[in-house]
Nucleic acid binder design. Sequence first.
DNA 1: CTGCTTGCAAATTGTTTGCAACACC
DNA 2: GGTGTTGCAAACAATTTGCAAGCAG
Lengths: 131, 131
Amino acid sequence: MTPQRRVIAEVLAGKHVHLTADEIHKRAAALLPEVSRATVYKTLGELTGLGEIREVTIGGRAKYYDPNLDAAHQHLSCERCGLIRDVHPQGTSGLKLPAKDRNGFALTGIDIVFRGLCPACANRRKPKFPK
Amino acid sequence: MTPQRRVIAEVLAGKHVHLTADEIHKRAAALLPEVSRATVYKTLGELTGLGEIREVTIGGRAKYYDPNLDAAHQHLSCERCGLIRDVHPQGTSGLKLPAKDRNGFALTGIDIVFRGLCPACANRRKPKFPK
DNA sequence: CTGCTTGCAAATTGTTTGCAACACC
DNA sequence: GGTGTTGCAAACAATTTGCAAGCAG
């Protein structure tokens, strides 16, 4: 357990934390300036391998890291700004794929993402200018 | 409608087509050598804007493009090799997020991805050695 | 001519890797 | 002194953009 890993763990602590590797790096560097991007990536890779966090790829370019593995949950994602929130709706936990639809796959999990616009993005309408 | 766009449309035609932009480019170039990557990206961007196809980001680095918008469907994805298949299981169409869980979001869609290992990948076991 | 499309190349973004220096048992 | 960690820099991969040239109406 090095100082670098501690600050990364601190950044990931808490509820509703869904950050990209780059955001994690920025926040970690604010706490401890001498944290390099490479270390953040390596640490996140290890944590993922250990099952402490999970990579989620939603809607965009960068991966998000989800430290909330205790409770099964789904994600609510803003298509405009990329904001991600955890949700725990009923009726999703029983969801599974019938054997006849599995195509021989060995299933390991199900990801459910509710897409939409967050309140802030829904208000300020499309930032698009008629020319 | 230019020759370039026609071959891109041809590549996208058919069922169970889930290709990355780069794969689309390779296949289009096989039909018509003078198709540049940039043109593929621009065309895919337009088609996405027009609602003809949809970008899906599953599990990895590159986006996949899904031309099957007629029928609501979900995806079955191999975590090892990236293979994606369409599935149409029962019991998912009624799924929606209760208002109390919406956090003020205006919902536009729900993505469901069943993760697992395809038959081929399940056979050749993890290329990973426990020490 | 005017406007949209193409395609090369360069720029951007997100992530991974090679490798030397370092700290810790 | 070996093991594992760091961090710089370079390599990569996926995508986007600037811009000059081409084609169609």
